Amino acid sequence: MLNTPTPLAPAAPPIQPVPSARETALRDAAKELEAGFLAEMLKSAGLGKTSESFGGGAGEDQFSSFLVQEQARAMVDAGGIGLSEAFFNALKERADV
């Protein structure tokens, strides 16, 4: 039998520090700010408007903003457009001062 070297195990990913409660709260606030921004952009793009041919009436008009807000939150959870990181850094800098 030949002595074949065993393959090296893959390196473990670097250990990330556990964020503090304050950083978690700031990150959540930053995500909500980005979601609010995206919701307004989605509304401006026409998402949530009642269709004229077949719509849900007054109920759809009243609750469409909730749908748009949740769609914006889903976009942020999927990575968003990067605003939440900028908001987080600004909020963190401001809180550290």
Rank of each mutant, 00 (worst) to 15 (best):
A35G: 02
F88H: 12
G55N: 14
R27H: 10
E23S: 11
S44V: 07
F88S: 09
S53V: 09
D61S: 12
F54A: 07
T24D: 15
L8W: 04
F66K: 07
N3L: 12
Q69T: 10
I81W: 06
E52K: 08
G57C: 06
F54C: 10
E60M: 13
P10N: 03
A12F: 03
I81V: 10
L47F: 05
S53F: 09
G59P: 00
E23K: 15
S44G: 06
A95H: 11
E60Y: 14
D77I: 00
D61V: 13
L67P: 00
S65G: 15
L67Q: 05
L38G: 01
E70D: 07
A9T: 06
S53Y: 05
P7E: 11
G46T: 08
G36A: 05
F54D: 02
G36E: 10
F63R: 04
T6R: 11
P19N: 14
A78I: 02
A58H: 05
E93P: 07
R73G: 02
S64I: 03
A45S: 13
V76A: 06
R73P: 04
G36L: 03
E52Y: 03
R94N: 06
A45M: 14
T6I: 10
K31D: 03
A58Y: 00
R27I: 02
E70T: 05
P7W: 15
K49T: 07
V68C: 01
Q16G: 09
Q71V: 06
S20Y: 02
A39W: 00
P19Y: 07
L8P: 15
G82D: 05
L33N: 03
A39P: 01
F37D: 11
V97T: 08
M1L: 14
I81D: 05
Q16D: 13
A30V: 05
P14S: 15
P19E: 10
A12V: 06
K92V: 01
M41T: 11
L67W: 00
T6E: 12
L8Y: 07
A9Y: 09
S51A: 15
E70Q: 08
G46N: 08
A21Y: 03
A74F: 07
L47R: 02
P7N: 13
L2I: 12
L47N: 01
I15H: 11
A95Q: 13
R22E: 00
R94K: 13
G46P: 04
T24K: 00
E40Y: 09
Q62E: 01
